[in-house]
Design a protein around this nucleic acid. Structure first.
Length: 267
DNA sequence: CGGCAGGTGCGGA
DNA sequence: TCCGCACCTGCC
């Protein structure tokens, strides 16, 4: 995918590489899916109209006009990643994902690069708890095993859930073993594009946002509930507002403009 | 070595 | 509905 437009007149060029020439129908469904996953049809106008006058958000909207959230993975893939993220540092999460890919993924070669491809839902080889535990995923083995089974049995259907209302999505996702409030939040926003969903912040997110918004020290952040109340002003775009603030912060950090962030990053 | 990272399920108030 | 606890593992 290549940027072939401007901010006011956006365009994306999609090149598809395949062993055999893909059919028209496949290309249409691929295009449609990419439009969905990267939110290419999202109209940001109402969000900008609501947030423009906000002292914190307004300038960031000016800087990042056109920025939209996007996530490449399917629901199943995000669930696996979400479980690997739970109660772990980034380094450990990567170690777990590598072990899972080595055991069950497919190594693909493209453009002189080797990339791991996810196995298909329901295809977690020998997804028994014992065999998964040998991959050093710890107690998450039970969650991974049960999640894979839920997809294998057809109990979960991502396309059906996309069409469901947020409350129904909530119920369906929380009924999955291994999905709690934190993972639910990531799924409802990144996978199902509920731009107003924001009702849980993890401790490290809390510390960062507390400093960003209230200027507190890392060892004395304001409570999560206080931060969530602050974001009420951004209804019905609470997640979108957080996304813009967050994205702006990390880019400023990349330019060396937010050194206070360093000790708060979990590696 | 023991504390820490810190999300989830579960049992009990 | 909320609280306290256990849980794998690897890093410090």
């Amino acid at each position: 995918m290549q940027d072939k437009g401007t901010i006011e007149n956006p365009g994306v060029q999609l090149d598809v590489y395949a062993r055999r020439r893909p059919g028209r129908e496949f290309l249409a469904s691929l295009t449609q899916e990419l439009r969905y996953r990267f939110n290419l049809d999202l109209d940001l106008g109402p969000f900008y109209a609501a947030g423009d006058g906000d002292p914190a958000l307004g300038p960031i909207i000016q800087t990042w006009r056109g920025l939209r959230p996007g996530h490449a993975n399917s629901l199943y893939e995000y669930l696996i990643i979400g479980v690997a993220l739970q109660n772990a540092t980034v380094r450990r999460s990567i170690q777990m994902m590598r072990a899972l890919f080595r055991a069950d993924g497919r190594l693909m070669s493209f453009d002189d690069r080797l990339l791991w491809c996810f196995w298909a839902p329901g295809g977690l080889v020998g997804a028994t708890e014992e065999s998964l535990r040998s991959l050093r995923v710890g107690y998450r083995a039970r969650s991974l095993s049960r999640l894979d089974a839920a997809f294998a049995s057809g109990e979960v259907d991502e396309l059906v859930l996309r069409a469901a209302d947020p409350a129904a999505q909530c119920r369906a996702l929380l009924s999955l073993y291994g999905v709690g409030p934190a993972t639910l939040g990531y799924l409802l926003t990144d996978v199902f594009h509920n731009w107003d969903h924001l009702d849980h912040l993890s401790p490290w997110e809390q510390k960062i946002l507390s400093h960003l918004i209230f200027g507190t020290e890392p060892d004395a952040p304001v409570p999560g509930t206080r931060l969530l109340r602050h974001f009420a002003r951004y209804r019905p775009f609470r997640f979108l507002a957080l996304h813009y603030l967050w994205e702006d912060l990390w880019w400023r950090h990349a330019r060396g403009e937010a050194p206070w962030l360093d000790p708060l990053i979990r590696t």
